[in-house]
Amino acid sequence: MINALVKLGRNTLSVLAGVGSASIMLFQSIVGKPQPLKMFPLLIRQLYVVGVQSMLIILISGLFIGMVLGLQGYTILVDFGAEQALGPMVSLSLLRELGPVVTALLFAGRAGSALTAEIGLMKATEQLSSLEMMAVDPLRRVVAPRFWAGFISMPLLALMFSAIGIYGGFIVGVQWLGVDDGAFWSVMQANVEWGQDILNGFIKSLVFALVVTWIALYKGYTAEPTSPGISAATTQTVVYSSLAVLGLDFVLTAIMFS
């Protein structure tokens, strides 16, 4: 009994210590004197690695998810003679939920795991220590540009995901299954609100971007500098970010749309 309580207490403390040191890491890397000339080339490079290279997978999965939504939605809605409601169904589910969430999950798998492995390996090969030896702060030089790149590019990827998903729904619904072109867009426009749907979805993706990038960087930075340590850190990045995204999504949905 006492042992169980001790274990609970120890686990709680270690979780809190983890959250605390992750916050300190994030704070130290992004707060400080801005050095735009030095940071900008690094940021561009990371935007390319994190954002541009994730674009293809995001666009293709967005297109297919939109097409599946169109197909499934049509088969159900046509029973009620309500196939004009296909437009709002596809666009609202993409803008509010699937766009931010699926983008965050794919982003955690595609870019988050890469960030963790890269920083973990930098640590294992003592590149981070060498930077410190040269009086370069690795948090500012290595972690900060990666954080900003993830935080900037994921919401942009989510926007692309929603847009191309809606186009996928349009291809299947209108051009293949024969829903009326005008009704598809006009019923969609009557139901989608700029602030309520698009902006809230964008805020969601900002939160997810923060969480996913943060977890990836922290896991890489604190990875045990061995092969199994880096592999475990990479796995934890994907698992923790996915769980955090799905859990936070429920909380955010409850706040925004209830």
Partner: peptide, 10 residues
């Protein structure tokens, strides 16, 4: 994508 969402969808 943002312009498309703002003008065509919303």
């Amino acid at each position: 994508a943002l312009v498309f969402l703002a003008l065509q969808v919303a």
